[in-house]
Amino acid sequence: MLIRILAIGVGGGSGAVLRYMIQEVLPSSIFPLSTLLINIVGSFLLGGVTSYFMNRNRGEILQLALGTGLCGGFTTMSTFSAEAVALMRESILLSGLYIGCTVLGGLTAYFIGQHVFLGRRSEERG
């Protein structure tokens, strides 16, 4: 149990630091592009991690570190929510665009990430 908690903590801390670094590099504007990109990339990575470890009986600690930890610490629902509400005060259209891009982009990225890694696993077997 302790090793799982440590793996998630190390992964989560790494993801949070990585998110902070990206948000510092990308210019900020009224539209929260950095959070949108972070959440879409994080969804892609989580799809890949989930797919990679699917039906494997080993690597649980690494899966927790990368999936729950890194991807969980990297992506951010709370920042997305705060930015969506702030955008609503400025422009309902921009807020709707942001929400739509985040949700549809995240789902699409997860799906693509899953299939990219599933395709690689199929090539390894074949």
Rank of each mutant, 00 (worst) to 15 (best):
I92G: 09
E24D: 09
A84G: 11
S81T: 13
T75K: 07
S81P: 08
S78R: 14
E124K: 14
S14K: 08
L104S: 09
A86K: 12
L107I: 15
A16V: 10
G69W: 01
G9V: 02
A86R: 15
I92V: 14
V17F: 09
V49S: 05
H115T: 05
R89F: 00
V41L: 07
L26F: 15
L18D: 10
M77T: 12
L64V: 00
I3D: 00
G119E: 11
L93F: 14
T79Q: 11
S34W: 02
R56L: 14
Y98P: 06
M88K: 07
L107C: 09
F80L: 11
G67W: 07
G100R: 14
G73V: 03
V17S: 00
G72A: 08
F117G: 03
L66E: 01
G59L: 08
V10W: 05
E123W: 13
L97E: 00
S91K: 14
V25E: 02
L18P: 03
E83M: 07
R125T: 12
I92D: 00
E24N: 15
G73C: 07
V49L: 05
L70E: 06
I5S: 04
L18A: 08
S43T: 00
T79M: 11
G100V: 08
Q114I: 00
N55C: 10
L46C: 04
V116F: 10
